[in-house]
Design a protein around this nucleic acid. Sequence first.
RNA 1: GUCCCCAUCGUCUAGAGGCCUAGGACACCAGGUUUUCAUCCUGGUAACACCGGUUCGAAUCCGGUUGGGGACGCCA
Length: 435
Amino acid sequence: MTLRTRFAPSPTGQVHIGNLRAAIFNWLFTRHEGGEFLLRIEDTDRERSTPEAVQAVLNAMEWLGLTTDGEILYQSTRREAHLAAADKLLQSGHAYKLDKGGTGKGEAVLFKMPGTDMAFRDLIKGDLHKAATDLQDFVIVRSDGNPVFHLANVVDDIHMGITHVIRGDDHVENTYRHVALYRALGAPVPQFAHLPMIVNAQGKPYSKRDGAAYVGDFREKGYEADALFNYLALLGWNPGDDREVMPRDELVAAFSLDRVQAKAAQFDFRKFEWMNAEYLKRLPADVYRQRFRRELSAAGLLPDDVAESYLDAVCALLRERIKSWPETALQAGYFFTEQYPFDPDAVRKRLKKEGATELLAALRDAYSALPSFDAASTEAALRGIAEARGINASELIHPLRVSVTGQPGGPSLFHLLEVLGRDRTLARLARPIPA
RNA sequence: GUCCCCAUCGUCUAGAGGCCUAGGACACCAGGUUUUCAUCCUGGUAACACCGGUUCGAAUCCGGUUGGGGACGCCA
């Protein structure tokens, strides 16, 4: 029998990182074992299941590279099979009809629990058991004739031949019901593995109040899919050695459910950002340039007539400095517009300082007379002025940077000037000090 | 309230009786490199929740306490 797993989200909006991690662990486990990873959309809730929500699931999986095997199963197409299973259970005496609670809504179909203590082995949490008295009969078909989650879930997992159910912690208690259903239906019981939750600093389930909680949030903010994948894989699991930044194939090779943590894990955004920066560093040059361009364009900073060589030069200069894409506008903006913002503190400290204006004028004169405007020449000229005046080179360097970039920090100043070019540099030096 | 689960640095974790004076990573602090910020390098602060057993020996096994979380729908 081939090992088979599934990801079975209900499309009710966006994909939460907790769900995404369940998908990742399923995928990693399946790829490691050489099995099949299937997708089932649990869209029986007509109210909330929209085509957009289904698309959000598909987009998220594609973005993260969570490849699936076989056709996608839409649970809404399985209604007849669910009801047939309920009939079978009614026939075999495993279920009965009842107007539960005397609501007058009509009779629902209830599944009859076996009346014995139950136990199952969870691949993550170990042996779990529950006393018969804590196991109550439950509704499998509502009085309006619609199948309930438990029935649909189990019937479909049987139909799909799922051998390993890897899902969230919140389903632990449901598992006793599900195991009983498998048995009553005469189907082999799959293996179960329940993943602990992702929590916030308060130990509560991580939600959008705690920051980026949906896959789309990460994507929109320009984080790397591979970084999110890697970080989430390491949240509640580790390879058993000190590796952390791990390419996809290494994760697959090292993954095993018995190294999954039994306790909840807190999402640490700072460590995630570190991970993202690690992935940014490793990006191939051409991919990096493509992303760089996309960010500038999104920020409305990319002129239509920009020269490719100029863009390349700026990109190369900033390559080691940008740790996340959202900061691109600030880091790179001044290369493309004269309307770059000035950092107020830097202006006060460097440009409004005694003598700064005069020094900048001297620099301007020297730079306009330079035979060649390259990094070595601009640096030599600046140091020459500093020496002639008996001042520290930094007395010139700081005002120059702020005047030309508006920022207190940035890439190597003289290389920056070379990329910026003489014309822009001189024009900026000639401008009055911003208020 | 009932039932279930969990418990190592602030965070993610290594650790499956002696290798632990508890290791790594993020964060933090200090120093170095740098014109600046960042990077980078070096070093540092920081944890076995508590109590009792078992054992020659316990972070590791057992029990209890405390704390945290989850589940208790004709939702999924």
